[in-house]
Design a protein around this nucleic acid. Structure first.
Length: 259
DNA sequence: ATGGCTTCATAGTGAAGA
């Protein structure tokens, strides 16, 4: 089973790249963030023509997440964190089954950015992460084979930051955010990227400005977290830097794992 | 250097991203 995640920064703009990516990498499930697409405008026909089943929950201008799967019949779909009042479309969960393998719970998340540590958005981010943790704890009880994929907007460690001194204490790197991420891992989840030897200076996001990508000035803020049961079965986790090199790229690279 | 790009909503600029 190949699971993947990509913050596309507008599915409308990145639809050709998304279709190319599906054809090239053949993921069983691709999680998308920042679709910026209202449900009535979602490009379902193009996705279906590529052989994928779309699930989506979107809003005007901002946020929006989707799950594209080879399986045509996802189960137990959720489009929000239960019992958490949030108008922003940031989560999507579904259950998939592949022949010969057990069912797998896939949760796509777009964690709030937080703006800066003094802002109300930062407090919203921390509150959101607490609600996510409580929900994932429930999900793990029901689904031992569980993966949480998405843009977490948190660099777990200084090695995930191109200039740790510049970013020390800043949003995406602050200790409360890192602690919130560790609290998710403490539920029994693993950062699948770190299950394997990886190149130094591996990142998933590079600023559009200041030639950030060409200078590899990036952050590793997109993650695939897998439960104990899936960690045992995980054979690879790879950042696809090539897609970040295309014309008119998203500022995030796709990330995929084989389980 | 709080900008530098990119997208969206909108029709000139402003918000948001990270």
């Amino acid at each position: 089973m190949r699971l993947a995640t990509w913050n596309v920064n507008s599915l409308k703009v990145r639809l050709p790249q998304t279709l190319d990516w599906l054809a090239q990498y053949q993921p069983d499930v691709l999680c998308l963030q920042e679709t910026k697409s209202q449900d009535e405008n979602f490009p379902s026909a193009a996705i279906a023509a590529a052989g994928y089943h779309p699930l989506y929950t979107g809003q005007k201008t901002y946020n929006g997440v989707a799950l594209l799967s080879k399986q045509q019949t996802p189960g137990d779909v959720l489009t929000a964190i239960p019992d958490f009042d949030d108008p922003q479309k940031r989560v999507l969960a579904a259950t998939y089954t592949k022949a010969g393998e057990g069912e797998i719970r896939v949760i796509c998340v777009y964690v709030p950015n937080g703006d800066n540590i003094e802002s109300d958005k930062y407090q919203y981010k921390l509150k959101w992460l607490r609600a996510l943790r409580a929900w994932l704890q429930q999900e793990l009880r029901r689904y031992p084979r569980l993966a949480v994929l998405g843009d977490f907007n948190i660099a777990p460690d200084d090695r995930d930051v191109y200039d740790p001194k510049l970013w020390a204490g800043q949003v995406l790197c602050s200790e409360p955010e890192r602690e919130a991420l560790r609290a998710l891992l403490a539920l029994g989840l693993h950062d699948s990227f770190r299950l394997f030897d990886q190149p130094d200076k591996s990142y998933t996001w590079w600023d559009y400005r200041m030639m950030g990508f060409r200078r590899n000035q990036g952050l590793r803020i997109d993650h695939i977290l897998v439960s104990d049961a899936l960690a045992k079965a995980c054979t690879a986790c790879v950042i696809d830097k090539a897609t970040r090199k295309l014309d008119r790229p998203s500022d995030h690279a796709p990330l995929w794992a084989d389980i």
